[in-house]
Write a protein that binds this DNA or RNA. Sequence first.
RNA 1: GCGGAUGUAGCUCAGUUGGUUAGAGCGCUGGUUUGUGGUACCAGAUGUCGUGAGUUCGAGUCUCAUCUUCCGCCCCA
Length: 429
Amino acid sequence: MTEKLDVAPLRGMRDFTPVDWVFRKKLLAAFDKASTKTGFLRYETPVVDSYELFERKAGEELSDQIYEFRDKSDRHLALRPEITPTMVRLYMGLKETLPFPAKIWSFGQCFRYERPTKGRYREHFQWNIDIMGEADVSAEAWILFTAVEVMKELGFDAKDYQIRVSSRALLSGFLLKIGVTHERHAALMTLIDKKEKVDAGWLKEEMAALGLTTEQIERLFTLLETHDAAEIGNLVGSENVDYQNLQKLFSFAEALGYREYLQMDPSIIRGLSYYTGIVFEAFDTQRQFRALFGGGRYDALFSRMTGKDIPACGLGFGDGVIRELYTAKFGYPETYEGVDMIVGYYDESLQKPAMEFVQKAIELGIKTDFMLSVQNPKKFFTMANKRHAKFAAYLAPEEYAKGEIAIKNMQTGEQKNHCLTELDRNFLP
RNA sequence: GCGGAUGUAGCUCAGUUGGUUAGAGCGCUGGUUUGUGGUACCAGAUGUCGUGAGUUCGAGUCUCAUCUUCCGCCCCA
């Protein structure tokens, strides 16, 4: 006996049903449209790559959250946890052929073995845009501009979300300035990254445990809690080049029309250790969800991975959180996509004439579904409803004898006969 | 990895201190109407009660294990 098939996907993995596809299509269209509008070129890389590639990128022991395996030739492989390493590989092979600086984008699935929660899976699709070969902060400005365009496409504005901007370089410089040596920066940044979530007292104790003096901690906190640009300038010195870069980013954002989306927030760090300069994260205004997207400048990554010094910055935007935000604002689509027209027929002798009619309609660009077998009228119009067809065209002997087909508007119930062979773009009543 | 909940029809859920053939609404199928859907009325089928063991005369209900989903912690895209 055949055992019952378990229809659920694996833990943390998602099926995209025809209903899910309605939102997914919208999201993809937004990414595609915005990236194309701002001049990015699309690429796509395999989901599987050598383990060594990801190891090289990490520059250290890889997280145990990576999906890794050996293939039949005993090659050590991994499912990509993010797109950046494969993008670097692709770019290195392609860079002489691409315009410079190169603006490229991709949308692909990434895997991470971890505990799933709502909006967080073991697999997700991520939109990535990167600019290679440009050290100026205009690159960051251009990346964020594109992300804002995506959000506009989806129907979100500055009331819905905000992009918090900071600079790792600025923070690092500040730490040195107040006398915190380099080797403690990484551990400290990990702590600062938690700031939103934990108690300030606990955070200060942890910082003290790292050897910071009370005065250093207080000065650091003053910076972290300052969201005013001029104020930050006073703290780090307005001649500070990282500070000037942040200022430039804000003025570019003004030129590109999205200044209202940006907030200065020195406590933004980003978990990934490869960021070197400006970093940013976007959150919904209610702070109900995790970050919508994030990114920044990672000038050191190429030299670490490839030995070539290439300045770069980029952004990653997953499909999980945006879906939650979209659902909260607009509601999630309840049903699958409809068609413009569905075509059915009364008996088998009409199958071929109906098919010829369908062919003409599809050639005109009408989204048309076709009943593959004979349907009596009752069944056919029920199917037309279920298929969410705007129009139902039914071929029966009486009409066929006159060279016509009955077309019914499913919303109004109005029905008219139409010539079977002469269709133009506006033949639907 | 740790702690806490959860799972019954396609969907949302009910199911009394363990007791005969497991229920509702929506949806589905058929009919009222053999050339016309949505509304109405009538009828029907929903099912290994997440899975596997155990206790019991008897388990959807109790025990154990396991899996899923969800919520914290950890981690992070």
